[in-house]
Design a binder for these strands. Structure first.
Length: 451
RNA sequence: CGGGGCGUAGCGCAGCCUGGUAGCGCGACGGUUUUGGGUACCGUAGGCCGUAGGUUCGAAUCCUAUCGCCCCGACCA
């Protein structure tokens, strides 16, 4: 993309409405525009990152054997009356009537609808196990939306549902999700710690929340510092193996890590004092096992091998996709702007032409641009007729992790500059070498395919 | 939902107390000058002062109502 032809309305000053850093930076970097409390338009740059994150989620879900599909955002109230949640949900659910005076609602979550699809089409234990999921907009009419996309009323969320014959199968699904979530967050450059959590209104016996440590987090968290030493890394795992998934669950839940909802001071105090941590975290996902809570009242049953109709065991699992943008920025920024992890960056590399109109500089930039695109990358070429300082400031603000700086002085010596946004270090090299270096860097951070 | 604050140009703000017909910075646009970390200067455009009603000769300013937004707390992907 050439910046002169892109739509990137960056702001020099901080909008008054934004208090926390991720919200400020998203507005300044021209990623979002607020339309109402907790409701945002996604401008091109924000939309691009949202898509990257969404596609990583898809990649990892599909890798784990889960099947993508999509439910409507507007749903009839009847299904919700059947589950008993139409009355239970309260004013957080946005309700409306259609022209025939039928009660409708904007889906705040989709247990009912997935269960309905399941019962309509699945009848035999032979069709199990089954995990289906969607990434779809949800609406919860929060009392107090805040922090930009971190607590919007409208938000983009992956929600998945597993249907299994037995509790053991459902718990394997639970573990499989835990593993896939660990992979998902790490690919985005985040460390998200699974913490024992409270089940809340969704209900269920087993649940973990995934939290990203950040000062601006809304939850207070308590953990053993050893937990943050764990990484999933690039290990391979067989998602069908109960033992392997169970082992990962045990490894990543072997140290104390809880939110304030489930915190137990007596257990916490048994941890050696130097390892006890009290911090704040951003909740970016949650997994539940809830047995037959929905399948029984809604008649989601299968016929088992003995010919009996039995309710299926279910679980649900969520990842806050739009919230993740905020969480990633909270965890990756400095005073100049965003620093995108390679896995989610909207463009792989920025090209800064220090002297637009200079024959050699223009030609070198065009060459780099073409070579990078040919290699399968998306470069962002700042070809505007702006001063160097302005171009640098824009690049720093929007946070591309790598920048190639091209100017007449360097070109006189046959070199351009490759700069890391994170470290600020610059290395001079020939243009072809810079392209090779970018290839090398992104070999470790494949960009997602999506569903 | 309780408590606090704010709505004036695209963005950030001043003016309001002590009514007299709206201003600054950034940005945008046009020039000149610059060009390796937001250059300097000149000029231009842009506002029914959130909305409605009231008081007044006169309202951004005072009064009433209403809508919207932000922050703190209680609740939540």
């Amino acid at each position: 993309m050439r910046l002169s032809r892109y739509f990137l309305p960056v702001l020099k000053e901080n909008p008054a409405e934004a208090q926390i850093v991720s919200h400020r930076l998203m507005l300044r970097a021209g990623m979002i525009k607020q339309q109402a409390a907790g409701i945002y338009s996604w401008l091109p740059l924000g939309f691009k990152v949202l898509r990257k994150i969404e596609n990583i989620v898809h990649d990892e879900q599909i890798r784990a054997g889960h099947i993508p599909m999509q439910m409507p955002t507007l749903q009839p109230a009847d299904l919700w009356r059947e589950s008993g949640r139409y009355d239970a949900y309260g004013p957080e659910m946005l309700r409306m009537k259609d022209r025939h005076d039928r009660d409708m609602l904007f889906s705040p979550t989709a247990e009912e609808m997935f269960t309905d699809v399941f019962r309509a089409h699945v009848n035999s234990y032979k069709d199990l196990p089954l995990t289906i999921y969607q990434i779809q907009w949800k609406f919860r009419d929060e009392v107090r939306p805040r922090f930009g996309v971190m607590r919007g009323r409208e938000f983009y969320m992956k929600d998945g549902y597993n249907f299994d014959l037995t509790k053991e199968d459902a718990l394997h699904a639970y573990n499989r999700h835990l593993v896939s979530y660990l992979r998902t967050y790490e690919r985005m450059g985040l460390q998200a710690i699974p913490m024992r959590a409270d089940s809340g209104p969704i209900g269920g016996d087993d649940t973990h929340e995934f939290l990203v440590l950040a000062e601006t987090g809304e939850s207070e968290v308590f953990y053993d510092s050893q937990i943050t030493d764990l990484t999933f890394g690039d290990r391979t795992i067989n998602y069908d193996s109960r033992e392997e998934c169970q082992a990962v669950l045990e490894e990543f839940t072997s140290r104390y890590a809880r939110t304030d909802e489930t915190h137990d001071a007596a257990i916490f105090d048994q941890i050696p004092e130097e390892r006890r941590r009290v911090a704040r975290g951003i909740e970016v996902g949650q997994i539940f096992y809830f047995g037959t809570k929905y399948s029984e009242p809604m008649g989601a049953t299968v016929t088992d091998a003995e010919g009996n109709k039995v309710p299926v065991h279910m679980g649900s699992h969520g990842i806050g996709v739009s919230r993740l943008l905020g969480a990633i920025i909270e965890a990756n920024h400095d005073d100049k702007g965003i620093i995108w992890p390679e896995g989610v960056t909207p463009f792989h590399v920025g090209i800064v032409n220090l002297k637009q109109g200079d024959e050699a500089a223009d030609a070198a930039c065009e060459g780099l641009y073409a070579d990078l695109e040919a290699a399968g990358f998306e470069p962002l070429y700042d070809d505007r007729n702006e001063r160097a300082g302005g171009k640098f400031a824009t690049m720093d603000l929007i946070g591309l992790p790598w920048r190639i700086t091209v100017g007449p002085r360097g070109l006189a010596n046959g070199v351009v500059e490759l700069t890391s946004r994170r470290s600020g270090e610059s290395v001079e090299m020939a243009p072809a070498e810079a392209v090779a270096k970018i290839k090398e860097i992104y070999a470790k951070h494949p960009h997602p395919k999506g569903a």
